[in-house]
Amino acid sequence: MAELGRLLKESWSLVDEQQDRMAAYFYARLFTLDPKLRDLFPVEMDVQRSRLLGAIVTAVQTLEDPERFADYLSGLGRDHRKFSVQPEHYETVGRSLIDALRTYGADQWTLEFDQAWRDAYDVIARTMITAATAEHGPAYWYAQVLSHERRGLDTAVFTCRPLEPLPYRAGQYVSVECGYRPRAWRAYSMANAPREDQTMEFHVKAPGAGWVSGALVRRLRPGDMLRLAAPMGSMVLDRGSQRDIVCVGGGTGLAPLKAIIDDLAATNRTRWVHLFFGARTRDDLYDLAALTELAQAHPWLTVIPAVSEDPGYAGETGLVSEVLDRYGPWNDHDFYVSGSPAMVAATRRTLTRLQVPSTRVRHDVFGHDY
Score class of each variant (00 low, 15 high):
218 R>M: 14
248 V>A: 12
256 P>S: 12
255 A>H: 01
245 I>L: 14
257 L>S: 04
240 G>Y: 03
243 R>Y: 04
254 L>Q: 13
261 I>D: 08
232 M>W: 02
254 L>V: 14
264 L>M: 11
227 R>M: 09
212 V>I: 14
234 S>T: 15
251 G>I: 14
221 R>M: 13
242 Q>I: 14
237 L>V: 11
234 S>D: 15
241 S>C: 09
240 G>T: 12
257 L>A: 03
242 Q>W: 12
218 R>E: 15
227 R>H: 06
263 D>N: 00
255 A>I: 06
263 D>T: 00
218 R>H: 15
222 P>R: 09
249 G>H: 07
235 M>P: 11
235 M>V: 14
263 D>K: 00
227 R>L: 06
215 A>K: 00
215 A>R: 02
266 A>G: 08
227 R>Y: 04
255 A>L: 05
258 K>T: 15
227 R>T: 09
261 I>Y: 09
254 L>K: 12
231 P>C: 09
258 K>C: 13
233 G>E: 05
246 V>D: 11
238 D>Y: 08
252 T>G: 13
258 K>S: 14
257 L>W: 01
215 A>T: 09
262 D>V: 04
232 M>C: 11
237 L>P: 02
227 R>N: 05
237 L>A: 08
248 V>T: 13
220 L>I: 12
263 D>E: 10
260 I>H: 02
248 V>Y: 10
226 L>G: 00
220 L>A: 07
226 L>I: 03
220 L>N: 06
241 S>M: 11
216 L>S: 02
213 S>N: 02
228 L>Y: 01
218 R>A: 12
212 V>M: 09
262 D>W: 02
256 P>L: 14
240 G>A: 09
218 R>C: 11
234 S>H: 12
248 V>P: 09
245 I>N: 06
240 G>Q: 10
238 D>E: 15
244 D>T: 03
226 L>Y: 00
220 L>Y: 08
255 A>V: 08
219 R>Y: 10
247 C>H: 05
247 C>A: 12
240 G>R: 09
216 L>A: 04
231 P>A: 06
237 L>Q: 08
234 S>Y: 07
226 L>V: 01
247 C>V: 11
225 M>I: 15
249 G>E: 12
216 L>M: 07
213 S>E: 03
216 L>H: 03
221 R>A: 13
242 Q>E: 15
247 C>T: 10
226 L>W: 00
243 R>F: 05
227 R>W: 04
216 L>N: 01
